[in-house]
Amino acid sequence: MAIFFRQLQGHTFNGNLADLLAEQQRFRAQQFSGLMEIENSNSICIVVVLAKGETVNAYLLQEEARLPTVLLENLQRWEDATFSVRSLPLSDVATRLLWLALDSQPGPCFEIRGAKDWQDWLNACQDEHVTGVVEIHSEACDGFFYLHNGQRLENESIFALQENLYSQVPFQAESSPWKVRLNTPRPETLAWQSLHLRVGAGQWFWHTLNRYQRIAGQRLTQILTHHLLPTIREWDWEIGPSSNTLEDRHFFARPSLAAEAYRALFMKVGEQMGIVLGSQLAQRFLSQAFEQIPPGERSVLTSHRLLPAAFVD
């Protein structure tokens, strides 16, 4: 029954609603992110996405469409008392990309054969500044990655191959054709807002720290990022500030949760910059960096009140 990340084994069983809820409870207890694929005897399939044990959304798969749905309502309508379930804990990056793909408008599926075709297609995407989630299925590899104005985002890429997850495209590893689909994100969805928030916060962080490093030097910039670590550790966020980038590999179930995390981190950034450069210059550099973010990401940050003025005393 495996639909997504078929190369990964997961836990497959036949069970009823109670068994499904028990499995969800297991995810919650272990704070797993991942997916559950539930299929009845009529081959109707629902995919549930979980972030750190919390159910994010469920999707009814109908031919080419993925429709957001309420899991329990569907299960109650099904005549079968039991159904087959495949639960698969995944990395946060893999799960949130799957969420983004399921929340997007699926495009037509096409085949790519060989590395040359693949590179040609990527080049065409780059030329046309394509934005969307690319979904790949082949015998040996399933994967997703996000194209942002034609550029593949390294932190938003995941490929399942031989029971493992990779962030690099493992094209050379196999010879079978790839079924590729470009999913166009819907701006109104939470998955898209989460992504834009993540990208925007990352860019803001990068511009701010680069500017700070230019005036205060490498050592003080390292000290600044060092001061972010206790907050990150305390909340178990999978966020790594290194080399002036904010590598966010955490799956926040809602954009508001991500915004809270970024707010806490930018508070620390503002505080540390204020100690060294004074609040006026800290404010100025945060504002300058904010202006460098593309308008789309900036408006998502603004809508979550992530504004330069909020982070300096």
């Binding site: 003080l220 390292q222 000290i223 060092h226 206790p230 907050t231 550790r233 305390e234 707010r263 620390k268």
Partner: peptide
């Protein structure tokens, strides 16, 4: 400029 800096106190948002 001394590295490593004194461990900062965590603060919950």
């Amino acid at each position: 400029l001394q590295w490593p800096p004194a461990s900062p106190k965590p603060n919950r948002p």
